Amino acid sequence: MNIKKITMRSIIVLFVMIIGFYTVLVSKSEPNGQVVHATSIVHNSYKDAKPFSLEDRHGNTVRLSDFKGRTVLMTAWTTWCGECREELETLHHIQQHYPENKLKVLAVNLTTEETSLENVKRFLGNEPMKATVLFDTKGIVKQRYGIYGIPISFLIDPYGKIIRTFPGVINQKDLDQWLPN
């Protein structure tokens, strides 16, 4: 066998091992016996939520630190993402279901991924939203949270730690399971 074949086979074996290791990490059992599925990721290290300051629909500056002491559900979305548009209604209902002193829902529009801020505002119209809509016009949240796929939600505890990441559309059942008491 020549060196190229051996090298190629070694790379393939290494790639398969990495995929297998990742799969085991994502689907391992939690101490309480629950299985963590690939649709949500536990941050065992409880990383600090990265600070940000964004404008809301009314031009007010909103900081993540404004919600210190409260649990925050932060979701990243765009208007061109069909799942994101559907999820906006879910976020509205989630915020309606929980009092704001227990859970604050922030719907962060990745405005750098949109054609314009005006188009996003036109999309939102004058519809009342219980969730607070914020505009990431400089890509700060996208960069600080390493967002590469949407929708994605981060559950941040009252101490500012990310305790759960939900890639894809979130639902109330998933959230109920992970909300701190």
Rank of each mutant, 00 (worst) to 15 (best):
D56W: 07
V35I: 15
K68F: 10
R9V: 14
E86N: 11
E55M: 08
S40P: 00
N44G: 15
W77Y: 01
S29G: 03
L91P: 05
H58G: 00
F21T: 13
V72N: 02
I41C: 13
R57W: 03
M8Q: 09
K50A: 14
R9K: 13
C84G: 05
F52I: 01
R57D: 00
S53G: 08
I11L: 15
H58F: 07
G20C: 05
S45V: 00
I19Y: 06
K50E: 15
A38L: 09
A76Y: 05
F67R: 03
R57A: 08
K47C: 00
Y22G: 04
I6D: 07
S53Q: 06
F67M: 01
I18F: 04
E87M: 03
M8R: 04
V16C: 14
D56Y: 04
I19H: 02
L14M: 14
S65N: 10
R70K: 14
G82T: 08
G59Y: 07
I19T: 08
V72L: 00
Q34S: 15
M8V: 06
A76S: 15
K28T: 07
Y22E: 02
I12D: 13
G59V: 11
R63Y: 03
W80Y: 11
H37G: 04
T39S: 15
R63K: 04
Y22R: 03
K50T: 13
T71A: 15
R70I: 01
A38R: 07
